[in-house]
Design a protein around this nucleic acid. Structure first.
Length: 470
RNA sequence: GUGGUCGUAGCUCAGCUGGUUAGAGCGUCAGAUUGUGGCUCUGAAGGCCGUGGGUUCGAGCCCCAUCUUCCACCCCA
């Protein structure tokens, strides 16, 4: 039998201890901030029923769901409608026929999927547990999610999201709170960020105002690209998406909008004066900006009409955070969703939340070298092993040291000292305790400082004190 | 889903227009040095050249497929 080379699925990663220490630093920081703002943790299963997940993330999102094959004889009971690939892929109708067959087959053989984000499972959770919860319900959730995307820079198929949401209140105070959380998290992590803020109602209003309310998604997707492809190409794309020339030209002032937030909102107010939704959006945005101005946030924030956000459950404020010093997709994003629980039978409940992308934050911090050195905690002291007698003597002291809360270990066999010291050196253990016959007699401990190479004989008390102070 | 890209020792890579037995550095292990790590020296182990087909007298090298890596688009954390 030949050995097979081990591997892990595309877009997934193993994490070494060195990486985990850094990842935990991010998780701990995020968690600590969430908790001082009064949020409590929940967890939900890795898998959800597909009926819970499907249709919540738009057409694209549905395609990116990892589906789980039913257990047992999953082919049982499939109606005989012929799931063979027909070879008429050059005819348009043939392709449609095939995809609908695949869809039908999928529904038969798969009823569960891996979660795509934490927001939709959260909405499901709220509906199921509504009788036990106190509203507004504030929770945080740090768990992995899975997307069948093509991996690339900052994009994985398995990654951790750190979500904070509050559900059961339409108050803009919560939008404010979330932006404060963003500011606090990134200040603590030492990343300079810019928080982009927009409002779906404004986008809807714009679509309405230029006479194409049903084209809101097309419009937002196109104008989001203006920095990337330029004004002319954006106009071209809008035309391809079926917008009239008059509609496109009336969009121009919005696209080219510059200046202070007030100037932008004034201009938009003029354009959207006949759209009730649009005016509501502007009102919300102005209110939020007024609240934000009174706080001294350390990181930048700004209003950006071009911010779109694809997840189609958002209905109000939308937020996205970018790192200023590196090129990376957004490292945090979210917004308000007015009726996510409605689909699950609990209508009229507004929620707002954001999600920190732990893996991208990790990549950003790594690139910028922002991890403090102090987080590398490892064993503090290694007890050298000189043989059976010395070993049992050392084990007793080791127990005492551990009771003092000092991470410590003993070398497993009485190998050459050279080897034992090499082990300590490679593991970056700062101290080695040498207890041989002499030390056993005198009751002292020989401590070697691995950084300086110096060693000295000290009493047990002094030994413990030194380890604690280092 | 679309387009490109990478894959040779544990790691980073070299390997000429296809030609004997596939190399280097680092790392690993052993020794020089039996209670003292990092430096140095000596030696050793380690490879179905991502996988499967094909072309050829002959393939690490050419062709096809497939998987994987990285990147861009789409979309997103």
């Amino acid at each position: 039998m030949s050995v097979q080379k081990p591997s892990i699925p595309k877009g997934t990663r193993d994490f070494t201890p060195a990486e985990m220490v850094r990842r935990n630093y991010i998780f701990n920081t995020v968690r600590a901030v969430f908790e001082i703002f009064g949020y409590l943790p929940i967890e939900t299963p890795a898998m959800e029923n597909l009926s819970t997940l499907m249709g919540k993330y738009g057409e694209e999102g549905d395609k990116l769901l990892f589906k789980i094959l039913n257990s047992g004889n999953y082919l049982e009971g499939i109606p005989d409608i012929g799931y063979q690939m027909t070879d008429d892929s050059n005819s348009g109708s043939g392709i449609r026929h095939q995809t609908s067959e695949i869809g039908a087959l999928t529904r038969h053989i798969s009823e569960k999927g891996l979660r795509y984000d934490l927001t939709v499972p959260f909405a499901r959770f709220v509906v199921q547990h509504q009788s036990e919860l106190v509203f507004p319900f504030k929770r945080y959730q740090i768990q992995p999610v899975w997307r069948a995307d093509r991996p690339q820079k900052g994009r994985y198929r398995e990654f951790f999201q750190c979500d904070v949401d509050v559900i059961g209140s339409p108050s803009l105070l919560y939008e404010l709170e979330l932006i404060q959380i963003i500011d606090e998290v990134f200040s603590r992590l030492g990343i300079e960020t810019t928080t982009l803020i927009n409002n779906r109602k404004i986008l809807a209003g714009i679509a309405e105002a230029i006479g194409a309310p049903e084209k809101m998604t097309d419009i937002t997707v196109a104008i989001d690209k203006i920095d990337k492809i330029g004004l002319e190409n954006v106009c071209l794309e809008l035309k391809e998406r079926g917008l009239s020339d008059t509609a496109i030209s009336s969009l121009q002032p919005v696209l080219l909008m510059e200046g202070k937030i007030n100037q932008k909102t004034d201009l938009l107010g003029d354009l959207l004066k006949n759209s009730e939704t649009g005016m509501k959006g502007i009102e919300e945005l102005k209110h939020l900006c007024r609240l934000l101005k009174d706080l001294d946030l350390r990181n930048k924030w700004t209003f950006d009409v071009r911010l779109a956000r694809g997840l189609n459950y958002y209905t109000g404020t939308i937020i996205e955070v970018k790192a200023n010093e590196v090129s990376m997709g957004s490292i945090c994003g979210g917004g308000r969703y007015d009726d996510l629980t409605g689909i699950f039978g609990l209508p009229g409940v507004s929620g707002v939340g954001i999600s920190f992308g732990a893996d991208r934050i990790y990549d950003v911090m790594n690139e910028l070298n922002r991890f403090p050195d102090t987080i590398q905690h490892t064993t503090k002291v290694l007890f050298a092993n000189f043989g059976a007698e010395e070993e049992s003597f050392a084990l007793k002291l080791l127990s005492i040291i551990r009771l003092e809360g000092i991470p410590s270990e003993i070398y497993p066999e009485s190998s050459k000292l050279k080897k034992q010291l090499e082990y300590a050196s490679r593991k970056q253990i700062p101290f080695v305790a040498l207890i041989g016959k002499d030390e056993m007699g005198s009751g002292m401990v020989t401590v070697k400082d691995m950084n300086s190479g110096e060693q000295s004989q000290v009493s047990r008390e002094e030994f413990i004190r030194r380890l604690k102070n280092s």
